[in-house]
Design a protein around this nucleic acid. Structure first.
Lengths: 246, 246
DNA sequence: CAGTGGTCTAGACCACTGT
DNA sequence: CAGTGGTCTAGACCACTGC
């Protein structure tokens, strides 16, 4: 069922975490790994490419691959909803809707969601928590074609993503996240139990379907003492982009 | 001597940016692209894998690849230093050292740099700017084995990375970045020309050589109105994709 | 210099999508 | 159902690293 290259990747990750290949150690050669697992070199290369993308190992032509880290940090490698992300860390996600209303699309809304201006759009204000502690204020705007499915959801629904998928088959397939920092406003401060003007980590994101059609966009503000983001970087390639303000 | 798969990737990027494949459009099949470029399917797959990693296109088994975005922000692909990144965006980077001193390694320093506690370490406080405007306060700690090469550098040196490479052949090959937000302290505020307690985007990073040996670690604080970070995401082999609508 | 990773080929079969 | 991407093989040559 699981692909052969994924099995090999999993085994390598385990061996690294076990300390069999400590940080700085060199991995076996591709041909050696291929022989050991009874697969072709191409399959081994698929496996090690995954670890390289995760920042676990480094790779240079002519030299053996080198272990860079003993464990994988929780990053943006895979798109997860807040609920899924919390679960992956072994914590319980909560959610509560505080306000829900329709407003005509601003030019900004229209541009981000690829819709006409003035289209009535569903705005939702949510607070989300980890293990009962509030860590995130979420201001989401939904595309008009999905809002009928969002509106009737339970205000305490822990995973909107999952409920929408169950109800409509909708898949949140892609996300673009822009990360910066803002000062907590009066409302943010009250909801997150921090002082006003206290720094918050802001993520503005647009989520789309498989074919790139925008489903929602959201302004998420995290308590920086509760949540941070980790990105790995290497000469050659990385998923992060640094942008100057326009 | 550019690789064939990279040429094909470049051509696809151009075609997308040209609008030949607008957002939502489907790319030609792998076999079609292979025939068109006179290469094997494997080479085409290398090319489209690059675009997928960049978030430019989406990919699902059984369906044609789909264009998700028409352009990419300035990527800091080659793990660019601040100076190199600024140059790539057509802006001028400046740098100024404000303080430089040795301090014994704290337990935190020792852990991050893989050195013994109490080792004297070079601490450098720098302000960096774009087109003359200060946007970043950088507090860097260098490993003991590289600090002799850092210490004598010109305080106004725009690119420490480049100078170190020229002087010692050192390569900054990997970086791990942890992103959160902090309030500007009195010193940060003065240096960046913002109010005290104003929110700053903080990136704590460790930079290593090819073999994972830490070279430096740094606490970088950006003015969030000047710099932000972008991450592209795609759903992986997630149960959400596989389950069917209820 | 031998060893290693990067690139590329020309097949093959399977799982999944869309019509 | 045909079309398409995901996986895999068994070769080959080249560029680079490290001794």
């Amino acid at each position: 069922m699981t692909a052969r290259h994924e099995q090999i990747a999993t085994e390598l990750r385990r061996a690294i975490r076990r300390g069999e290949y400590p940080v700085g150690a060199r991995l076996p050669a591709e041909t050696e790994l291929a022989a050991r697992h009874g697969v072709s070199r191409g399959t081994v290369r698929q496996a090690v490419a995954a670890l390289t993308a995760e920042g676990l190992i480094g790779s240079r032509q002519g030299a053996r691959r080198v272990v860079l880290a003993g464990h994988r940090s929780q990053s943006f490698a895979e798109l997860r909803s807040f609920a899924q992300w919390a679960q992956a860390m072994g914590r319980e996600a909560t959610g509560r809707v505080l306000a829900q209303e329709y407003r005509p699309a601003t030019p900004e809304d229209a541009a981000r969601l690829h819709l006409a201006e003035h289209t009535p759009l569903l705005h939702v204000l949510r607070v989300r928590g980890l293990d009962g502690e509030p860590v995130l204020v979420e201001r989401t705007v939904y595309a008009d074609w999905i809002s009928p499915a969002v509106e009737p959801l339970d205000p305490d629904c822990a995973s909107v993503t999952q409920r929408l998928h169950e109800e409509t088959g909708l898949v949140f397939a892609h996300g673009e996240h822009v990360i910066d920092a803002v000062a907590a406003g009066a409302r943010d401060a009250a909801l997150l139990a921090v002082r006003r003007t206290s720094p918050l980590l802001r993520v503005r994101r647009v989520t789309t379907t498989h074919d790139g059609r925008p489903v929602e966009w959201s302004d998420d503000r995290y308590r920086p003492d509760a949540v941070s983001f980790t990105v790995h970087n290497a000469i050659g390639h990385n998923p992060l982009v640094r942008t100057t303000a326009g």
